[in-house]
Simulated assay, not measured.
Amino acid sequence: MGKSNSKLINQLFDFKGAPLLAVGVLALFYLEKRYALRKRKDSLRERLKTNSMVSSTAIVALRLSLIPALVKAAFLAGERNLGLLRVLRLPSPFNHIISFLLLDYGSYRWHKLNHRMPFLWRFHQVHHADLDLDVTTALRFHFGEVLISVLYRGGWALLAGVTPRQVLVYELIFEGATNFHHTNLRLPRHIDRGLARLIVTPRMHGIHHSVVRDETDSNYSVILNIWDRLHQSLRLDIPQDQINTGVPYIRHHANASELMVMPLQPKAEWKFPDGQVPLRL
């Protein structure tokens, strides 16, 4: 990693973006406690303890592995004139718009792969095994998932031909959007409906965390939900009070130790402990 890339990460991500994200998380945490969308099922204190322990390792992996890899991939694209945007040579405004769309579509594809490929799901289920859904869930990822994503997301940035600044700006918006749509914040319905025409909202993503398989296998978008619309994976029809959050085969509060070793275990069947398959009646 060159000095210029490290300086860019420090200036844009560490000194500007990260503090804003931290303030955003605290604000969302306060607001979702005051204006709750879904009733809690698990102890908030225990969830905070577990999710903070799991997320701390993921944040380290993000900053020390994924962020440098994304910037390095973008740097190589420019140095060796690789990637779609390097071929198209679009005017600056269009270049920024297309770079954002390309990166966001890549995030959609990566999220979908995490649900479709058994090996990737073994890591991603750590995020979905939370019995409640709030802003702390947005940070609860297994560090192994973050490390594995380096190969895919770094390769995608290289193929797209984005710049280091573009990939960092996208990553900051990506993290902010992830925090927002995982929150348990009850937005007025007309505001939620208006936002859902373009971006992922808490109600929309709440459906994705349902124990019903068809609902979990929907709403993969991270920022713009156009990708779910194009691939017909959009669901907006399930009321939040009818969503049973989590994965069916884990119906207890899994502590940090259980979650960290979860990827080492065989993929479980999509059933409740009593053998019943969750269905929407």
Rank of each mutant, 00 (worst) to 15 (best):
M117L: 15
N51H: 00
M260I: 13
D214V: 13
R86H: 12
F100S: 04
D104T: 03
A196C: 08
K72F: 14
D42I: 12
W270Y: 06
R63M: 14
N5S: 13
R122P: 03
E175P: 04
I226L: 10
A157T: 03
A138V: 02
L82S: 04
L259A: 07
V211W: 03
I250V: 12
P202E: 04
V261P: 06
A73C: 13
L102T: 03
R109W: 14
M260S: 11
P118A: 09
L224D: 00
L28I: 07
Q240C: 12
I9E: 03
R45M: 14
H205N: 03
K39D: 15
R122K: 14
I243T: 01
R122N: 10
Q232M: 09
R40N: 11
R186L: 12
P188A: 06
L90E: 07
A254V: 08
R203M: 10
V261G: 07
G206P: 08
L28A: 01
L259I: 10
A129N: 10
R186W: 10
P68Q: 01
A196N: 09
H205Y: 03
S43I: 06
L12Q: 08
S43W: 08
M204R: 03
L187P: 02
V200A: 04
T137V: 12
L279K: 15
W110Q: 13
F141D: 01
K33T: 14
Y35M: 10
L151N: 09
V135R: 02
K3G: 11
L230E: 06
E175G: 09
H115W: 05
R153S: 08
L113Y: 08
G154D: 03
L236F: 05
K271N: 11
P239Y: 10
A77G: 02
D132V: 01
R193E: 15
P68L: 07
D274I: 07
H127W: 02
Q11H: 14
Q11I: 14
V162R: 04
V54H: 05
Q265S: 11
S107H: 12
Q265E: 11
H205D: 02
T136Q: 05
P202A: 01
K16L: 15
K39I: 10
H142Q: 04
E145N: 12
R116D: 13
R80L: 15
L70N: 00
G246S: 09
L147C: 05
G106V: 03
G176K: 02
D237S: 13
K41F: 11
P19I: 08
N184Q: 02
E145H: 09
V167M: 01
V162Y: 05
A268D: 08
R197E: 13
H231D: 15
I59F: 12
T50Q: 07
P263R: 03
A138E: 00
S52N: 07
A73F: 04
G194F: 11
V23G: 09
H111G: 02
F272A: 09
V60Y: 06
A61L: 06
H181T: 01
D104V: 07
L224A: 09
L120G: 00
S65C: 15
G206K: 06
R63P: 06
D42A: 14
S6C: 13
L26Y: 08
K72Q: 14
V162T: 06
F29R: 06
T178I: 10
G155A: 07
Q232C: 08
A254F: 08
L158E: 03
H252W: 15
L28G: 00
P19W: 05
T245C: 05
T163M: 00
L62G: 04
T163Y: 04
W270F: 01
H252V: 13
H115D: 01
D241A: 10
R186M: 09
Y108A: 00
